[in-house]
Design a binder for these strands. Structure first.
Length: 274
DNA sequence: ATAGGGTTAG
């Protein structure tokens, strides 16, 4: 949709809307979301001089993210240094963007250096920073390190959130450890953290593969009762599993419940004659 | 306003 965004941006004066750095940032965001990473540099060169818009930290953070997404991590780091030369100080968002990119590229020592730099420069790592590192440990299947790191998050005084618990749950999903998945799900709810759509997606998908079909059904109902729109394919999988386990009435009930669900247009079928 | 986790079958 980047073209639509650009068209509207160009039409703003005729619509009596002044173009500010906010509109410029929204335009950058549209290009980022459309994965037009290579076009973002051009926007920076073209628009600010022409419209006397001064790009701000949010603009540059978006630019840095685009470079990371495009696989140009070194350029992203360079841009962070460059904006600082122009008097704009990186913040926690800048650092977390780069932190994630370093971990995804397995450039762990640079991730560690960045973390140390943050602490030195009083850009205090927040829960998001910790979750990035936790997710990275999970991806590397470093089970004991992940457990230890989760403890560290708690000891630092953070209240683990959906991202933190999702990471731990995901780790045991990868391991196929049903007991631990359940343990972490319980721990999550007991600590007053209600699973969101992403966490429910992981849990429901795992419950289906582990043939814990009642658990899957229960989670689907929970999702709909709390107005959380689980993806259609996940819901269909639960319906299929119910049918496979001859729980036809439950399957019917779930399809009906989904049909009456107003927030999302579910299209589910009962595979009864397959 | 910008940063972190999530589907799918054969």
């Amino acid at each position: 949709m980047d073209h639509h965004a650009r068209k509207l941006f160009d039409e703003m004066p005729q619509l009596n809307c002044p173009r500010t750095v906010f509109s410029f940032n929204a335009l950058l965001e549209a290009y980022l979301k459309s994965e037009k990473y290579d076009k973002i540099g051009g926007l920076f060169r073209e628009l600010p001089p022409k419209l006397s818009i001064e790009p701000d930290l949010v603009s540059y953070n978006t630019g840095i993210k685009a470079l990371c997404r495009a696989g140009l991590l070194d350029s992203a780091v360079y841009l962070m240094d460059e904006i600082e030369n122009h008097g704009i100080k990186p913040n926690i968002v800048t650092c977390n963007t780069l932190l994630k990119a370093f971990h995804e590229s397995k450039r762990f020592s640079e991730a560690e250096s960045l973390w140390a730099m943050m602490e030195k420069r009083n850009i205090i790592p927040d829960l998001c920073s910790y979750n990035i590192k936790l997710t990275s440990l999970v991806k590397a299947k470093e089970v004991s390190k992940a457990i230890q790191f989760f403890e560290e998050i708690v000891n630092k005084g953070f209240k683990p959130d959906n991202f933190s618990y999702s990471a731990m749950i995901k780790m045991y999903v990868i391991k196929g450890n049903l007991e631990e998945v359940n343990m972490w799900y319980d721990k999550m709810t007991q600590n007053g953290c209600l699973p969101d759509v992403s966490t429910l997606t992981i849990l429901i998908s795992f419950a289906c593969s582990a043939k814990k079909i009642d658990f899957a059904l229960d989670l689907c109902k929970k999702a709909m009762n709390s107005r959380k729109a689980i993806h259609n394919t996940i819901m269909q999988r639960v319906v299929n599993c119910l049918v496979e386990h001859s729980k036809i009435e439950n399957a019917r009930e779930l399809v009906k419940l989904a049909e009456s669900y107003k927030s999302f247009p579910y299209e589910l079928s009962l595979p009864l004659h397959s």
